[in-house]
């Protein structure tokens, strides 16, 4: 299922940690990254080391992360152009004239974007989508947002499943989407897909209502989360914060 493509099930301590701790820790880590001045190159390297530490604990191989991090590419495409089109002082790099300000701006986007994507992927890899919702709920995120997210999660899987069935039915009737001129059938299918998914999502919602759903996932036996768990979970964020403070102090 596509919603679970980002989740890598496991039983490491990073996986077993309560989801709300991981959400808070990821959020604080990203805040530190974003708040770091762009010229503190060492700090960015240190953030990557912290993340690597988490990957070692969670047993996430870089090979698994790399293709998923590619989602960032469209967003950083612009950043690559900045050194060439930026104004201000210019300098020569490998024989090409680049703008210092533009290069720094581009670096800022690439470094912070990559660290942000990697941190999010780490959270997603160790926490299943339903756990993330549970974590948000425990963090008292408004009920409406949780409801929308729950239904969205449900829809993503439904859309994928419906699309698979419709594709099979088309292929069974001799459709070969590898040929460009047959793309039209796929495009027309999207409209049908929307209606079918909407109707099914509606039925799922009715079935949930019929079993007394009120908008929040019931949590009959909430597990106790100890202070030790919180402290352990916040170590990466704490390290990032220490580096940020250190970098600002030294700068």
């Amino acid at each position: 299922m596509s919603a679970h493509a980002l989740h890598r099930p496991g039983d490491t301590s990073a996986h077993l940690l309560a989801p709300q701790i991981k959400i808070v820790s990821t959020f604080l880590f990203v805040v530190c990254v974003v708040a770091t001045p762009r010229t503190e190159f060492a700090a960015f390297g240190a953030y990557l080391v912290v993340l690597t530490g988490v990957w070692v604990i969670a047993r996430i191989p870089p090979r698994w992360l790399a293709p998923r991090a590619l989602i960032e590419v469209p967003f950083v495409a612009l950043a690559v152009l900045l050194p060439f089109v930026g104004g201000g002082t210019r300098t020569d790099m490998l024989g090409v004239s680049v703008s210092v300000d533009g290069a720094l701006a581009g670096w800022n986007i690439v470094a912070k974007g990559t660290l942000g994507v990697l941190a999010s992927l780490t959270l997603a890899a160790t926490t299943s989508p339903s756990e993330i919702l549970l974590g948000l709920q425990r963090l008292r995120v408004p009920k409406l947002i949780i409801t929308v997210a729950t239904l969205m999660l449900r829809y993503v899987e439904l859309i994928a499943a419906e699309a698979r069935r419709m594709r099979l039915a088309r292929i069974a009737r001799g459709h070969d989407p590898r040929f460009l001129w047959q793309v039209g059938a796929t495009a027309r299918g999207i409209g049908t897909l929307f209606v079918r998914t909407y109707e099914r999502g509606e039925r799922v919602h009715l079935a949930m209502l019929s079993r007394g759903w009120t908008g929040a996932m019931p949590e009959p036996n909430p597990p106790r989360v100890s202070t030790v768990d919180w402290l352990a979970g916040l170590v990466p964020a704490g390290l990032a914060a220490a580096m940020l403070v250190g970098a600002l102090w030294a700068g």
């Binding site: 949930m208 079993r211 007394g212 759903w213 009120t214 019931p218 949590e219 009959p220």
Partner: peptide, 8 residues
């Protein structure tokens, strides 16, 4: 199976 009774 627990979803319904937990809601109630």
């Amino acid at each position: 199976v627990a979803f319904g009774p937990a809601n109630f």
